[in-house]
Design a protein around this nucleic acid. Sequence first.
DNA 1: CGCACCCTTGAATTGTATCAAAATAAGTGG
DNA 2: CCACTTATTTTGATACAATTCAAGGGTGCG
Lengths: 244, 244
Amino acid sequence: MPAHCFADVLSEHIDLTPAERDTLGRLEERSRTIKRGGILRRSNDRSGELFILRSGLMMTYVLLGDGSRQILRFHFPGEMLGLSGIVYAQAPESICAVAESVVCPFERSALAEVIEAHPRLASMILAYAQVERVSLTDRLAALGRTSAKARVGALLLDWRSRLRAGDGSIGESFSLALTQEEVGDATGLTAVHVNRMLRQLEEEGLIAREGQRVTIRDERALAAATHYVDRYRNLDLGWLPAGR
Amino acid sequence: MPAHCFADVLSEHIDLTPAERDTLGRLEERSRTIKRGGILRRSNDRSGELFILRSGLMMTYVLLGDGSRQILRFHFPGEMLGLSGIVYAQAPESICAVAESVVCPFERSALAEVIEAHPRLASMILAYAQVERVSLTDRLAALGRTSAKARVGALLLDWRSRLRAGDGSIGESFSLALTQEEVGDATGLTAVHVNRMLRQLEEEGLIAREGQRVTIRDERALAAATHYVDRYRNLDLGWLPAGR
DNA sequence: CGCACCCTTGAATTGTATCAAAATAAGTGG
DNA sequence: CCACTTATTTTGATACAATTCAAGGGTGCG
């Protein structure tokens, strides 16, 4: 019994037709569980498959020659993974599970069929890719032009926004299920420095911490200090073609 | 008389049908010239339009609160600009001309029509967006995890690859039509430090310079030092649906 | 209980930014 | 075409942010 995770995410923005919903459901017919730390795909693996993340938490990253790692993106349930691989025979990025996860693998050809049969879904997929792109460029700007403290703060705000997108009841407090090393690899810092920045944010009263739990104590100030913009809200999809 | 810049770029990878070519040509019916330094679109402007860059050189960037600038991408002729704006009412990024340029503006609705009428073109546009995405993540990794020298070196290699894509006759030597400040804003460095890095690369015999002209003198060593990967080659588009 | 893994803290080092100024090149108007 | 102004490149001295190295203390887990 396939779920409709991806369809559910898209439904938050447009009303899907039954045919569209059905087509998307077919991408989730198979499923696969990956344990915490498990690798779904290594860079340079054959990249024929794509995935829908049904549950858990995953991340995409690259390893550089000297062994250092740059985390490119964290993935939350309902996202499509591995889209960047569609243009290369070998995957440009690695994907692994940050927490135990379930993914639904499907072939590139299935994506082509969706695009062919449903122009509106094709447009939505393109649109979602743009949201991710803008989110990436925000991080690019953060790495290039903002301080360590701002980058860590922005990551916290981003996590809260994205957790909230999946669960509207999440308020100022949430669980940051990442090690400080992972935060460092995402923000371009060392784990040691991440620790100091978290402490500083705490001392300044912008956040509070207890174990994994983080509380945003002064959202206004934190947003100002980090230049954070929530890119998952206020989408403008009025131009989409009609659904079939 | 509309040109077919965008169609020409896509033609390097697949054989377009006459109908596809014609449809793409309609995106280039109007045109507009922008002088060096001219701004095509400011961030937070209404972002209803997209563009095909017919000639010249443009760049996309963001300005941060403190006035610093992060250049997100340089754009060469044949590229589609402003795609990231399709999901937001207000543009997330600014676009300006690095050299005098000609662009062809078109509406989002025209993009929707292309997607609706030609699934293969929709797939190609999505695929191209992925190439750009991977190129962005390469830079994200460079900013997060590589040295100043490596970032500057990678920018040089990237420029050469992209110039060569437009003009196969370009060899080891090319004109880098950027100020050192622009290089700095693209690589997350100060202009002063870019200068020192260029000088160092020169002293080490990896490159030579005279005025704007740069020559790659030891490509092997430069590629190794920068982890550069050319993402514009070896695309795998065998999965595309049939053309209409 | 013992072994990993993670967090925390300190001291020393290094890469890059900042500030300042001279030298060179590129525009611009007369 | 020259004189003037304005950008850009180059160089040096200094300051600082973040890394590196090192070690102690938690915490969960087999």
